[in-house]
Design a protein around this nucleic acid. Structure first.
Lengths: 338, 338
DNA sequence: CTGAAAGCGCTAACAT
DNA sequence: ATGTTAGCGCTTTCAG
């Protein structure tokens, strides 16, 4: 059995009886090529099934057409969604996406970034873990955009988390809730802090507006996952009816879904006995029972801006804060009459 | 501002006063290098922060350390889970994963594969779309493994879907259900057909075992998504209580979750009025309300075998069919007494 | 055990 | 308008 190597510029050049330079020019859509010759070359390319090697090209240009995507966990629906849009956009522009999971581990993140840098990527999109070490190792020449979580000294594209927190609080307040719980993310992450601050700030405003109608807020810290939402939800809900919160907001949808679980197990009906509002609006949010009221992040827009920043006109200036939006579904209602 | 290029073998060689060949040998852990020189070189490498360029290396070896992962949609939890495990394994072995979504479009798939081939990947893991065209364009030299869905002429690593279908049917039958619905995937895909055949086969066995106790099976075809599960679920459930199925099996968990939605909207209680069994056991299956009984695919094992096939001892022989397992949770129960 | 040199596939500067 | 050629960073013979 004979191993057939894939054809190179040389093969094409020989077959078309032109030089490699000409082939390269045809490939580059350089207009200065004689139409007749161009056609001959294109024919040969088609006939041989020639596809230019990314490797050779990238080495020569000292820049590959790879975009690195470095995220904590592709299994998180938010990042999966983001990855999909990023990949679609990148693909349309002729780039490919290299996926790397950090599992929320700064050392793993570092290793992933190092290994990515060896590939001379065209750009890198990173959602840094808390306590990220990569700030120092990203070379100056590399275009990078951080998403979701900020990294000192790099441009951030993210939703306005503070405003998002406020939105959730406003909604609950307007429904009439006065005993409210909040499940935050790890307070080591900036996202968590922003969302919590927004939420708390709005609640405190309400409290001071009408002193006779105090709002009682209980905040508990957890991780950004289902389990955490379930476990912390249990804690918040264990008091008896008159004392436990009538509404709980969470720092992301997974927590909210975990909380839904906990409520069900505890025999607490949503939204009759308990209102729940999440954050992110992952696709699943509209599929769970009941459908989740949540604060929507414009993921597609985040992806678009990130790609534009990487491939487009130039680096973005300062952090970009996108507007969140409250999506009202079935998990929130006025508090029970009692 | 001066642009600092990353150092190359040359720089290291000059600084360490050795030849590039020696530097390369140090990198390759070649034992024939004088320990003193080796140490000197390693020092310089550390001092300059030198990292060998993947590009140069790959070009020279005509093989990159990239593994292509070509799947319909990373947003599908099953593929996200798979991607995570693959990436973790690949990363540990010094490889990176390039992600490409085909959106179930044969033409897009073709393009993605083409663009991947330009990168001379070390291997490719592909879950082909139905009507895939890539069978012809994969070069002989390339190690590839197809997962989930088969591709003629390529080695497949997947769960035994036929057996999985049987498992679901057995469970429902044993609980005593006799009016059963089945929501299949697109019958253009082999997976769907296998699962359905397994399911139907088992049901027919039961019917012939005891002729007096006929089982009534209604099969409807849909897509592998939430929406389809919801829509088709509605159709299956629209008859009145005495006629509609007391149990429905689906071809994947997303459909089952959509079906859960539909049941809730129709006021049909699960599992009291209706039993539901899914397929895949995505993480979400144990989070929904009620927790979903489902047929588990050993995703991690699939990833391991795929990676081993790509990077390990050699190509795998013939299709590998892994054992599925029934995971009993809260969405199935005996049929209502009536 | 180490150095010198060729060459992987490609592009771009230079020459014609 | 087209051909020639150097060289991107690396590995690997082949000499010494």
């Amino acid at each position: 059995m004979e191993i057939v190597l894939s054809p190179t510029v040389k093969d094409v050049a020989r077959e078309a009886r032109v030089s490699v330079g000409t082939v390269s020019r045809v490939l580059a859509r350089n207009e200065t090529v004689n139409p007749g010759i161009r056609q001959r070359v294109e024919e040969v390319i088609a006939r041989l099934g020639y596809r230019p090697s990314s490797l050779g090209r990238s080495l020569r240009l000292n820049k590959s057409d790879i975009i690195g995507l470095i995220i904590p966990d592709i299994t998180n629906p938010f990042f999966a969604e983001l990855a999909k849009h990023l990949e679609t956009l990148a693909s349309a522009a002729g780039y490919s996406v290299l996926l790397a999971n950090t599992h929320d581990d700064p050392k793993a993140e570092c290793k992933q970034v190092q290994s990515l840098l060896c590939r001379v990527p065209a750009g890198i999109v990173i959602a840094p873990v808390s306590g990220s070490l990569v700030g120092g190792i990203l070379p100056d020449g590399l275009v990078s955009v951080t998403i979701d979580r900020p990294l000192t000294g790099h441009s951030l594209v993210a939703v306005d988390n503070f405003e998002g927190g406020r939105l959730a609080a406003s909604h609950l307040l307007e429904l009439g809730h006065r005993r409210i719980g909040y499940i935050s993310g790890p307070t080591t992450t900036d996202v968590s802090i922003q969302r919590l601050n927004g939420f708390r700030g709005r609640v405190e405003e309400a409290s001071s507006d009408r002193a006779q109608d105090l709002v009682q807020l209980t905040v508990l810290e957890g991780n950004f996952d289902y389990k955490s939402g379930e476990a912390i939800g249990r804690k918040l809900l264990q008091g008896n009816v008159g004392r436990r919160p009538t509404a709980i907001a969470t720092a992301n949808d997974q927590q909210a879904i975990g909380l839904l679980r906990a409520s069900r197990d505890l025999g607490i009906r949503v939204p009759e006995d308990l209102s729940i509002v999440g954050f992110d609006d992952i696709p699943l949010a509209s599929l769970v029972l009941p459908r989740l009221t949540t604060v929507r992040q414009p993921i597609e827009e985040i992806a678009e801006i990130a790609i534009r920043a990487l491939l487009g006109s130039g680096p973005i200036v300062g952090p970009i804060a996108l507007r969140p939006a409250l999506v009202e579904r079935d998990s929130t209602a006025p508090p029970p009459a009692c």
